[in-house]
């Protein structure tokens, strides 16, 4: 005689199925929540991401992160010349504020340039080393200094303290040459922007 299935087994099986389903749903919800949380980084971090990180201090604060903190507290968004109008537009969109023109009191938009020390004229006073916000200048007292080009943010801060004026800001191509343009920009099928050397 085929044994009858005990009701308790039916209950256990169906119960475990329900539990499994609930666990699955819970996992999905947890993943979705996780995704949301990943998308919503803190406001400070998002502002800081939009700033160019040149650490030039033209905004009046020590660096980009301090300025981001002040923006969080309600400071104006148009104080960053290296970021230019693009940064202002992005900040305005993020902060739900109107787009303002760059405040000329903080400087003008300039092409990207890196500091280059005329090494023969350097007297080794270490003043530029102290001024550099990203430690991109190396050298010792009374020895020649030089700038690590890859690390230079082009902040200009080393130029002013130099007692013998041996630091030049030399413009560099910012990024790779643009080879493909969007057809809708109407500039032609293919155009190569000259790479300034």
């Amino acid at each position: 005689m085929y044994p009858l299935i005990d009701t308790i087994y039916v209950q256990v099986i169906s119960g475990s199925l329900v539990l499994l389903l609930a666990a699955h749903l819970g996992l999905k919800i947890w993943q979705a929540l996780l995704r949301q949380r990943l998308l919503q980084r803190s406001l400070l971090e998002r502002i800081n991401r939009l700033l160019p990180q040149t650490q030039c201090g033209q905004c009046g604060y020590e660096g980009c992160l301090p300025y981001a903190r002040e923006i969080c507290r309600g400071d104006a968004i148009n104080k960053c010349p290296p970021g230019g109008p693009e940064t202002i537009v992005r900040l305005a969109a993020l902060m739900h504020r109107p787009v303002e023109p760059l405040n000329p009191a903080h400087g003008q938009v300039k092409p990207f340039a890196v500091a280059v020390i005329r090494e023969a004229e350097c007297i080794g006073c270490t003043k530029c080393i102290q001024a550099c916000p990203v430690d991109a200048i190396i050298g010792g007292p009374k020895l020649m200094h030089t700038v690590i080009e890859q690390e230079c943010t082009g902040c200009d801060l080393c130029v002013e303290p130099c007692p013998v004026d041996c630091i030049d800001m030399i413009s560099r191509a910012w990024g790779n040459p643009v080879i493909w343009l969007l057809p809708s920009s109407g500039v032609g099928v293919r155009q190569q922007l000259d790479t300034a050397v």
């Binding site: 990180q53 650490q55 020590e62 980009c64 992160l65 550099c132 990203v134 991109a136 690390e151």
Partner: peptide, 13 residues
């Protein structure tokens, strides 16, 4: 690049 600059600035401070 900007991440690199930022981390160097933080280390500087």
């Amino acid at each position: 690049t900007s991440k690199q600059w930022q981390s160097r600035f933080q280390f500087h401070q």
